[in-house]
Simulated scan of single mutants.
Amino acid sequence: MPEAAGTPEEKEKEKGDEGRRKHRSFWKELPILIGIAVVLALFIKSFLVQAFSIPSDSMQNTLQRGDRVLVDKLTPWFGATPERGEVVVFEDPGGWLGDSPSAGGFGAAVQDALSGIGLMPSSEDKDLIKRVIAVGGDTVECHKGGPVLVNGEAVDESDYLYPGNSACDDRPFGPIEVPEGRLWVMGDHRQDSLDSRYHQNLAGQGTVSEDDVVGRAIVIAWPVTRWGTLPVPGSFDALAGPAAVGAPGAVALVGAVPLVLWRRRLAAGAAARIETRGPAG
């Protein structure tokens, strides 16, 4: 006859000990889980995607004050550079935002801690968000009553320009040749945006270095009712850049080189035959 496994009191005690061991195990593992979560959040923020809050009305109606956008930080690692029509987040090139009083206290400290892992914007952030209108090598201009011109071609801004706004009546400019590696940016709410037009007196003459770009805004993530992507308007696809304008000439040059060499070779062969024959007589 098998021995009894134990009295009911002993069995109950064993169950209690097992429960306490599981409880202690959870609390031991919790710091490890939190550490893994923080490392993942830091990796995602640093190399993949970061959330930004829209602080102003300068990008209406594309973006509203208080929207949260997700910014792609991955593609620049593969050598991609900002293109015309993209909405980009960039660091203050210097003097665009001026001196703003820094927030202090416990709330700011908590916000900065959460910002470190990408859960909130930093209280010290000096980032801006605008639309790229022209890139390095482009010539951009806009005169009162007219549209924005990029390399002499009018940009159709009807898809994103704030209703009732003009292209640049408040601040005409140009023509301006954008240096290589820099960008000309403007807000969609044109009459409520201190963009490239208003900083031509600073270093860079209103342009933004590609190195200052944090990434491209790709999605409105919050509020849920405004969820949507931020594609490049089709009007920018139709614009020809300086390289595209010169491309036919380059192709013609490449095609002409073999032809010229072939003709020279024929001429040299003909001259050699004449010398071999000597003068006619």
Rank of each mutant, 00 (worst) to 15 (best):
A240V: 13
R182Q: 07
S46D: 10
S166T: 15
P93N: 02
S196A: 06
D127Q: 10
P172W: 14
Q200P: 05
K144D: 11
P279G: 12
I218Y: 05
I36D: 04
A41M: 06
R190P: 08
G79I: 07
T276G: 10
T81N: 02
I220G: 04
S122Q: 04
I176K: 11
T139C: 01
P231T: 05
G174I: 03
G35L: 11
W262E: 11
L161N: 05
P242S: 12
R65F: 04
Q60G: 05
E12Q: 14
G118Q: 06
K126E: 14
A244E: 15
A108W: 11
K15Y: 06
E141S: 14
Q200S: 11
E141I: 03
G241R: 05
Y198S: 14
M120Y: 06
R65P: 02
G181F: 01
L40E: 01
G137L: 08
G187T: 12
G6V: 09
P172A: 13
F26Y: 12
R216G: 02
N151S: 10
G94V: 02
V38T: 09
G85S: 00
N61C: 00
T276F: 11
V132W: 01
I117H: 04
E18K: 14
R20P: 03
V155C: 09
E141V: 03
L42E: 10
E124Y: 07
H143C: 00
A267G: 10
V178H: 00
V88N: 00
G228D: 06
V185A: 03
R264H: 02
A154D: 14
S46T: 12
F43M: 15
S56H: 11
G98C: 04
H199P: 09
P93K: 07
N201V: 08
G85C: 01
S46I: 03
V260I: 15
S158P: 08
A272Q: 13
R190G: 10
P223C: 08
E9S: 14
V257C: 07
E9W: 13
